[in-house]
Write a protein that binds this DNA or RNA. Structure first.
Lengths: 190, 190
DNA sequence: TTATCAAGTTGAACTTGTTCAACTATTTTA
DNA sequence: TAAAATAGTTGAACAAGTTCAACTTGATAA
């Protein structure tokens, strides 16, 4: 069943009756995104919340210097969206691009609101998911402050080997917050 | 009334009936923390979620080199806790210290669980608070990657002038992720 | 299959930020 | 109020990371 992965993902966060799980999953519609195509581009409003079934996405921002700075990569079993743009229905600063042929399950904003009203336990699910996400962002910020680029590189490739193997060094550099030239020099020394 | 500030804070996130607001607030108990004392120390388990009524806290981690790296400052109308330690009841990596005589409202973990069960709308409240928090952490990470220390300093003091005025330069440097010597040099040049 | 384009490498000069040490305020405490 | 502790400043040497340009390698498409 197409929703199996989503169900497993939900179960990692909360234990819900099967009826709730099914009702939640029914709001999500599959979509295929070919490699290099965008799920969201800077300036447009994020109208979906996505769950990745296959492939991988890069969520990045283009800064004033024209550099692509990657917020995160979302592979199978990750969530993908611009939470600020989705919540507040304002133009996004982010680009979300498939780096492989990919497949996602999407829920629209209207359906998400409806979901919260009709399946109250969804509030708990997304509260817990959000709180776990805060922990991850805090830890990433700490690593950025306390560790060198080399340590951050080693941390990423050992923590997310499956994602890292799909990425070019240029993409990884954009995630670490360094230039790809410097990443090349780091790798040579190790 | 002591809970006025908390009620106003909640109302910024969700609109709830007064009965719910009161029931939520009743779980929170006031506590006074003198300047320099700790609400939480590294290694202990975070047993509370706090809302700051007066004063200011510094939430920081001591890294391998012995440097104090500040995750954030929490002044009046901010929330303060180690969300990872609180959720998972595991030893905290964080220290939370009052940098002024301070007053907080605290809810214990047991009461928080009870609150979610007895006041279902609390799920929505904390979901929305958490989602806003994710946005803030994402934006901070982007600023850390795309901006120089000087830009980050100017951003902080102009965005949070009331908090910045309570802090020493050493404390601000620890938040920006730079040494206090370098902050001193930045300030001289501007 | 060759031409093209993007990814990765390397070096030299440069900028940003650190370290350490010595010094000068400014607070805090006895 | 004097002594002690802490915060802030400055300089010099250093390390981390950037920039730009030239080159090599690998992938992609006509």
């Amino acid at each position: 069943m197409i929703n199996d992965l989503l169900i497993q993902n939900i179960k990692k966060n909360v234990s819900l009756p099967d009826t709730d799980l099914k009702r939640i999953c029914n709001y999500f519609k599959p979509k295929t995104i070919p490699k290099k195509e965008f799920l969201l581009t800077q300036g447009s409003i994020c109208k979906f919340e996505g769950f990745v079934l296959e492939g991988c996405f890069r969520i990045f921002i283009i800064d004033k210097k024209g550099h692509e700075n990657t917020l995160y990569f979302a592979a199978k079993d990750w969530w993908v969206m611009d939470i600020d743009s989705f919540m507040n229905q304002k133009p996004s600063d982010l680009n979300i691009q498939a780096i492989e042929d990919s497949k996602v399950l999407l829920i629209t904003r209207e359906d998400k609101t409806d979901l919260y009203n009709s399946v109250p336990s969804a509030e708990k699910l997304f509260r817990i998911m959000s709180q776990k996400s805060i922990v991850a962002w805090q830890q990433r910020l700490i690593r950025n402050h306390c560790q060198t680029a080399k340590d951050r590189y080693n941390y990423y490739i050992s923590t997310y080997p499956d994602i890292a193997s799909k990425l070019t060094d240029k993409q990884i550099a954009g995630y670490l917050g360094i230039t790809h030239e410097f990443l090349s020099k780091i790798k040579k020394k190790s």
